[in-house]
Amino acid sequence: SKNWSEDDLQLLIKAVNLFPAGTNSRWEVIANYMNIHSSSGVKRTAKDVIGKA
């Protein structure tokens, strides 16, 4: 699996709070948010995000 930096983990926590349970396509939305805002340049999929959340 791809390494997660501390910044990416913080971003994931922020995204999970921004897009609560019940959000349509929640994990796709979170992955997309991370891909836009992450400084690491690593592209995450919904599966990556679910695996780490």
Rank of each mutant, 00 (worst) to 15 (best):
T23P: 04
I30W: 01
W4H: 01
N3M: 15
A15E: 00
V29C: 11
K52H: 10
E28M: 05
Y33L: 01
W4D: 02
S40N: 09
D48F: 00
S25T: 09
W4P: 01
S39E: 15
N35Q: 04
Y33T: 01
M34R: 00
I30L: 02
G22C: 14
V49F: 02
I36C: 14
N3T: 10
N32L: 06
G51Y: 11
N17T: 13
L12A: 03
M34W: 03
W27F: 08
N32Q: 10
K2P: 06
A15L: 03
R44S: 05
L11M: 07
W27I: 06
D48G: 04
S40T: 09
S39R: 13
K43D: 13
S38P: 01
A21Q: 14
D8Q: 04
V49C: 13
I50V: 14
L12Y: 09
L11K: 02
L12R: 02
N24I: 11
S25I: 02
L9K: 12
P20G: 10
N17A: 11
D8N: 02
A53P: 02
G51D: 15
L9E: 14
T23H: 09
S40V: 05
I50S: 12
S38A: 08
A31G: 03
E6D: 09
Y33M: 01
G51V: 09
G51R: 13
N32M: 06
V42I: 15
W4F: 10
K2C: 07
S38N: 09
P20F: 00
A15S: 08
D7C: 01
S1C: 07
K2E: 11
E28H: 06
L12E: 00
A21W: 07
S40F: 04
V29M: 15
F19H: 11
D7A: 15
A15H: 02
K43Q: 08
N24T: 13
D8Y: 02
Q10Y: 08
L11E: 01
K2H: 08
E28S: 13
N32Y: 04
K52Q: 13
I50W: 11
D8G: 00
M34L: 12
N24K: 13
K14N: 07
S25Y: 07
I30H: 00
G51H: 08
N24H: 15
E28Y: 01
I30C: 05
K43I: 09
A21N: 08
S39V: 09
S38Y: 00
E6I: 06
A46M: 08
L9A: 13
N24S: 12
D8E: 11
F19K: 00
V49M: 08
A31Y: 00
R26M: 00
A31S: 09
N35H: 04
N35A: 05
K47M: 10
A21L: 11
V49E: 01
I13H: 14
P20Q: 06
K14H: 12
A46F: 05
N24G: 07
G41C: 10
V49K: 00
T23M: 08
R26N: 02
N3Y: 13
N3Q: 08
V49G: 01
D48S: 08
S5T: 13
L11C: 05
I30R: 00
W27G: 10
T23A: 07
V49H: 01
L11F: 05
N24P: 12
S1V: 12
S1A: 05
L18H: 07
A31W: 01
I13K: 14
G22H: 09
V16L: 12
K47Q: 14
D8S: 03
A31H: 01
G51T: 12
A46H: 06
L12K: 00
S40G: 09
A46D: 12
S38E: 03
V49R: 01
K52R: 10
E6Y: 08
D48N: 03
L18F: 08
I36L: 14
M34Q: 03
N3R: 06
L18S: 07
S25G: 11
M34D: 01
L9R: 12
N3S: 07
K43Y: 11
Q10E: 12
F19G: 00
I30V: 13
W4M: 12
K14V: 08
G51L: 09
E6S: 15
V49D: 01
D7G: 13
Q10K: 10
I30S: 00
K47T: 15
K47V: 11
E6V: 10
L18E: 06
S5D: 03
N3V: 07
N35P: 00
I36N: 14
S25F: 07
S40C: 08
G22V: 07
K2W: 06
L12V: 04
V16T: 15
K2M: 11
Q10N: 11
G51E: 14
S40P: 04
Q10H: 07
V29A: 15
W27N: 04
S38D: 03
E6A: 12
G41K: 14
S38G: 12
G41D: 12
L11V: 05
I50G: 10
L11G: 02
Y33I: 00
I50Q: 13
Y33V: 01
D8P: 00
L18T: 12
A46I: 09
E6R: 04
F19R: 01
V49A: 08
G41R: 12
N17Y: 08
K2T: 13
K43W: 07
I50T: 07
H37R: 09
N24W: 07
V16A: 09
I13N: 11
S1L: 06
I50E: 15
G51W: 12
N35F: 02
I50K: 13
I36E: 15
T23L: 08
A46P: 11
F19Y: 09
L11W: 03
K2N: 15
N35K: 01
G41N: 10
T23C: 06
L9S: 15
V42F: 09
Q10C: 04
K52L: 05
D7I: 08
G22S: 14
W4I: 05
E28N: 06
A46K: 11
S25E: 09
K47F: 08
A31P: 01
K14D: 12
N24A: 15
L11I: 14
K47I: 13
L9T: 13
Q10G: 10
I13P: 04
K14I: 06
E6H: 03
I50M: 15
K14Y: 08
Y33E: 02
D48K: 00
A15F: 01
G41H: 10
D8C: 02
K43F: 09
S39K: 11
V29N: 09
W27Y: 06
D48P: 00
A53F: 03
S5M: 04
S38M: 02
D8R: 05
W27Q: 02
N32R: 11
V29Q: 15
M34S: 01
A21T: 13
I50L: 12
D7Y: 05
N3H: 13
I13A: 15
K47W: 07
A53L: 03
G22F: 04
D7T: 13
K14G: 07
F19L: 03
A15C: 07
M34V: 14
Q10M: 06
Q10D: 08
W27M: 06
N35W: 01
S5L: 03
V29G: 13
L18Q: 05
V16K: 15
N17V: 09
T23V: 06
V49N: 01
M34P: 04
A46L: 06
A31R: 05
A31C: 08
E6Q: 12
L12H: 04
K43S: 09
L9M: 14
L18V: 10
A53N: 04
S1Y: 05
A31L: 05
N32P: 01
L18A: 14
L18I: 11
M34G: 00
N17P: 01
I36D: 14
D48C: 05
S40M: 04
S40W: 03
G51A: 13
E28P: 03
I50C: 07
I13T: 10
N24Q: 10
A53Q: 11
F19D: 00
M34Y: 02
K2A: 07
V49I: 12
E28Q: 14
N3C: 07
L11S: 04
K14T: 11
Y33S: 01
K47R: 12
L18N: 10
V16Q: 15
S39N: 11
L9I: 13
L9N: 15
V29T: 14
P20H: 07
L11D: 02
A53R: 04
G41F: 15
G22Y: 07
S25R: 14
S39W: 09
A31T: 14
W4L: 07
N3D: 14
S40H: 10
V29R: 14
I50P: 03
D48T: 04
A53S: 13
A15T: 04
N3F: 13
I30M: 04
S38I: 00
I36R: 14
S5V: 03
K14E: 11
S38C: 09
S25Q: 07
M34I: 13
S25P: 04
T23D: 09
K43H: 09
E28I: 05
S40Y: 04
W4T: 03
T23E: 06
L18C: 08
A15Q: 00
T23Y: 08
N24V: 12
G22T: 12
G22A: 12
S40R: 07
A21D: 12
E28G: 05
I30K: 01
D48A: 07
S1P: 04
N17G: 11
K43L: 12
G22N: 11
K14C: 07
N32C: 04
S1R: 03
Y33G: 00
I13D: 15
N24M: 12
G51C: 10
A31D: 01
D8L: 03
G51K: 15
W4G: 01
W4A: 03
W27C: 07
Y33C: 00
Y33D: 00
I13Q: 15
A46W: 06
V29K: 10
A53W: 02
S1N: 06
A46C: 11
N17L: 08
L9V: 11
A15K: 00
A53G: 10
K52S: 07
S5Y: 02
N32E: 14
S38K: 04
A21V: 10
L12G: 02
K52F: 06
G22P: 08
S39M: 10
N32A: 12
E6P: 15
N3E: 04
T45S: 10
T23G: 07
V16P: 00
G41Q: 11
D8K: 05
Q10T: 06
M34K: 00
K2L: 06
S1H: 06
M34C: 10
Y33F: 11
K52I: 11
A46E: 12
W27T: 05
V16M: 15
I36S: 14
S1T: 11
K2F: 06
N35D: 03
I50D: 08
A15N: 00
S38H: 04
V49Y: 03
A53K: 07
